[in-house]
Each structure stands twice: as C-alpha cells, then as structure tokens.
Amino acid sequence: MSQPVLEAREVSKHFPVRIGAGRTAVVRAVEDATLALQPGRIVALVGESGSGKTTLARLLARFYPPTSGEIRLRGKAVRGKERDYHRDVQLIFQDPFGSLNPLHRVRYNLERALRLHHGVRARAELNRRVLELLDRVSLSPADQFVDKFPHELSGGQRQRVVIARALAVEPKVLLGDEPISMLDVSIRLEMLNLLDRLRTEDGLALLYITHDIASARYLCDDIVVMYAGRMVEGGPKDDVIASPLHPYTKLLIDSSPDPDRIGGDRDALFDSTAEDLGEPPSLIDPPSGCRFHPRCPFAMDVCKTAVPPRTELPNGQWTHCWLQQEETR
C-alpha cells in the first residue's frame, strides 16, 4: 500500500455553543478520529445524521483547525495558514445549487479556478482547458454547456460542473460530502462512475461521505463508520458489510434497504430491526465509555465507563467495541 497523501491523526473538534442565559457548552462533534487517504483509493465515511462526517471532512479541508490532533499532508503536519493547501485538497459539498456562483456562466466558474490556482492567463489556453474539463466530467458537447448559467443546468449537470471546478485545481485529494444525495436517483450512478474514473485515471485519493451504504459499497475500497462523533469501525468494504464487528455497524446495515431480501415474511423482516433503541445521544453531554452503550443490546458494565480500545483483525478490519476485546483476549 502506498503512503497516505492526506491523514487525520486523532483529531477532535469541539464547538463552543450558547445554551441560553449566558451559559455555554461544548459540542463534541468529532473525537479522536484517525483516517488515511491513499492515492487511487476511495474511503467511504458513513454514519447517521449528526455523527460528525461533515465536521471531519471540513477538518481535512482545513475549513477550521482541529481542537486537538493533527492533519498531515504527504506525511507532514499542516499548521496555520497554508496558501497552497487547496491546490492539493478540494472539498465538494452536498448542494450543487449553493456552490457555484449563480451570476456567472460555467466558463467563468471554471476559469476562475484555473487562474487562481495555476495562474493560467492566456485566453486560448483557458478556453482549451475549460472545454477539456467539461469533457472529463462528460458534459459534452462541451461548447454547449460552457456558456450556460448554473440555473440553466439540471442538478446532475451542475454537480458535474462543481466536480470539474474541483478538478481544475488538479488536486491530489477530493473530499465529497454527500456529492450525489441531492441528485435524482437515475443520474447518481453516472456520478459515481465519474468519481471512480477519476480515481483510476488520475490516481486521486477520495473520501466519499454518504448515508447510503449500498452506494458506498459500489464505489469505495474501504468503509469507515462513525457514530456520535467517534469512529466505531472500518476496513475493506465487503468484510465490513458481510461481517460487521460493531453492533452499530450491524444495525446500520440491517436497517438499509436490500431488495434481495424480498420474498419472505415482510413483517418479520421489518420486526427484526424494530426494537426501540431510543434516540441518538447528545454531543454536548455524550454517553461515557462507548457512546453507543445506551442503545446497544449487548452493553456490559465496562462499556459504560471506558472508551473501547481499537481491535484489529488480520483482514484489515478494525473496531472500537468491548465485545471484540473480550473475544480477542
């Protein structure tokens, strides 16, 4: 395996928030997260709403600094303002509507990135590269799209322009924060195939954030699962899906739609995951020990008091769960 190009090492992010009457509290959005992105590989980050996926992506994009821990680019810790950072690391947001300048045509949106990051100035050169970018994201014929305004494009086309703009920078790392969830189902696959091509052709390192495990499996090599701000499991996608180690991962996978299961007793199928698990925890006052323990059907005493250490399996799968510690002892 090659060296990681971008890494998060035990990063945490705590947001101070007001909770009324002049009192403040801290949202522990991400705690001790470690993640490595390698060239030509795709890591999917999955987990429920509010589990810290976007916060982690923003930490990796240096949107804000971590409260503790470090971000490393090509093995070197990144500190303070680094002007060239975004030449290597580009973040794509969920919303293709908000992230393009609506007052400018596609051409301008792309040229701006080329000028800013590569100092391309010559008209002919700019034009050539803009058309080339549109071709790469399959917006062809490119000359039909280049002079359109964002509102004249469909959601899928807009998201492709967003990706083209990120590519204009020629980054080494692409962080996709739910890049397809706003798109129509029939065009999501095209987008996933495009991301897959970028990985293969350009050797991009990709982080793919999603709620949808089936699409994560389609695209990625490895899956990392977050729960309530902590990473609970990770490893090769098929191992994680076929034999999840953490009870939350198992719950997440069992709850995901899987039409291959139809044909049996529908009510029994739904009932099998119907236990009332209560609500996801507060991140202002997160549960002690394993953050999943209040909802975990297997919780033991130790789970309530101590954060489970990492257990690693020979296949590359790892988890933070006391059950696995018991078993490996």
Binding site: V185, S186, R188, L189, I213, Y218, I253, P257
Partner: peptide
C-alpha cells in the same frame, strides 16, 4: 428497469451500473 438498476445491491455481487442517462 433503469430505475431498479440505479440502486446498487447491498450484498449481492457488484457489477457496473449505469443508471439512466439524460434527465427527466
């Protein structure tokens, strides 16, 4: 058929899917 094939499977073997080109 296109819509069905726009949802990658969760467990069964993966194959390349193409969704439905174009938009509604």
């Amino acid at each position: 058929r296109g819509l069905r094939d726009s949802f990658p499977p969760l467990r069964s073997p993966l194959r390349r899917l193409s969704g439905i080109p174009g938009s509604p």
